[in-house]
Nucleic acid binder design. Structure first.
Lengths: 246, 246
DNA sequence: CGGTCATTTGAGCGCACTCAATACTCGTGG
DNA sequence: CCACGAGTATTGAGTGCGCTCAAATGACCG
């Protein structure tokens, strides 16, 4: 195994800023636009991994299915994300549309070929891979030792940042996924997710208005209940001596 | 985010086979050998990430510490592993010696510079990164929805494969880590790990002899209790139609 | 307005956790 | 070689968080 440790945020913002001009998405521009509606599956876990996909609008969930029916969602994708980067013969997970999705596809061969001529994009690819490793490790920490409330608060904050970045009203969380999706992402049941949201609303921290949007009333309380918020803690870090004991 | 899906096994075996001749380890060969003993910390979470490390012998644990004292082990490293690959300013985790460890180090700059001249090694690096992403996602599935017994059986099988690959006697699991390390890796408590091992031994599946080695008596039972074993299921897959419903 | 699906709410249970005590391992020194 | 001590592991008792099963309510669409 190779343990890595990558410059997530700065590079991510960089790629976000240059997307459409220099991002990996440019490699898909000659492909025709395809569409999927809520519940449609772009590709299945186990399918031959022939293509990569660039999401242009809408949202996807990335799922892994256990043979007994249990499901884990390992991530949610949205505009400007790329999915299917792979050296493996078959996809290790399914990609399913949460709502109306439009995307472009590209064969693996053509993608790799174009990449050979673009050292700058190779670096972007690497940085996004790194981002993914870091995200996966954060998720491992969350799943390994956090309570239901901590998990949900963490998730809601993450979503709040995404929503604000996408231009939603301040303090409004946009949730394109269902409660069941959230549960499968956080390693909880749908009932526990629901109960926890209700509890937070009862404490005046949230106001769960409609199904797919939640208003945050006390962000500070949310941060506190999330335990140490990964995002805010791992970000700046330019000075030494941090939070560990020994 | 960028969701990836990589050719884990074949590439891994390739890198294992060529290690010492063409692997990433060659980039460390001019460095002097350093040593650490059990409990020593090679680098801390939060330290400036200046170096990469190539493990030459012994075992390490990779830890993340939460500010309230909880700890998660995200992986174990051993001979021929590289740690510290990073575009980030600071390490996101600590690396601690489980036993007597010898390693070589290399600055990030020198590593990257040498890599520029070696497209073959760039590919190895990428493949190992992919391996790590796949491993992390397997772990997410394990942590999100498996019982204590499933987790432990999964872990023991994983360790059994590693032990046999390293030339231990057949069906003997070598465990360089403590029960607490195992617990922090599997998202359990030390008591639950201990109880589960006792239970499996009582059922004649294991024989927990000394502290750091376990004899497997019924491997099939272990596989069955692990649920679907990720390794064996994700491996071959050359034919279509696999285990999902829809 | 009715039907379907998503969500909420309730009651009860069980797995894994916590706290606590005991037993084992292994290294060290008498 | 044995006795001792510190760290590690096992075992026991009891509890609680999140799960399961079940029913009611609410949202959305034709």
């Amino acid at each position: 195994m190779l343990a890595s440790n990558f410059n997530v945020r700065p590079l991510f913002e960089e790629t976000a800023a240059i997307n459409g001009r220099c991002g990996l998405g440019t490699l898909f521009e000659q492909s025709s636009l395809e569409h999927a509606t809520a519940g449609e599956i772009v590709f299945f876990e186990g399918d031959r991994a022939l293509h990569l996909f660039a999401i242009r609008s809408g949202n996807l969930r990335i799922c892994r299915q256990l043979h007994d029916g249990r499901r884990v969602i390992t991530g949610f994708l949205t505009k400007n994300d790329i999915v299917g980067v792979s050296f493996k013969n078959r996809y290790l997970y399914s990609a399913e549309a949460l709502d109306d999705v439009s995307f472009q596809r590209q064969t693996k061969g053509a993608f790799e070929k174009q990449l050979l001529a673009r050292p700058d994009l190779r670096r972007v690819l690497l940085s996004q891979l790194c981002d993914e490793v870091a995200t996966a490790q954060d998720q491992m920490v969350l799943l390994a030792c956090r309570s239901a409330e901590e998990r949900l608060c963490s998730f809601l904050l993450e979503r709040l940042h995404k929503s604000m970045a996408q231009g939603f009203e301040p303090n409004v969380i946009n949730l394109p996924m269902t409660r069941l999706d959230i549960a499968d992402y956080l390693g909880l049941t749908i009932e526990t997710v629901s109960r926890t949201i209700t509890k937070l609303a009862g404490q005046g921290i949230l106001s769960a208005g409609r199904r797919h949007s939640i208003l945050v009333l006390k962000k500070a309380a949310l941060v506190q209940r999330a335990g140490e918020d990964d995002a805010t803690c791992n970000d700046g870090l330019d000075d030494a001596t941090r939070y560990y004991r020994h």
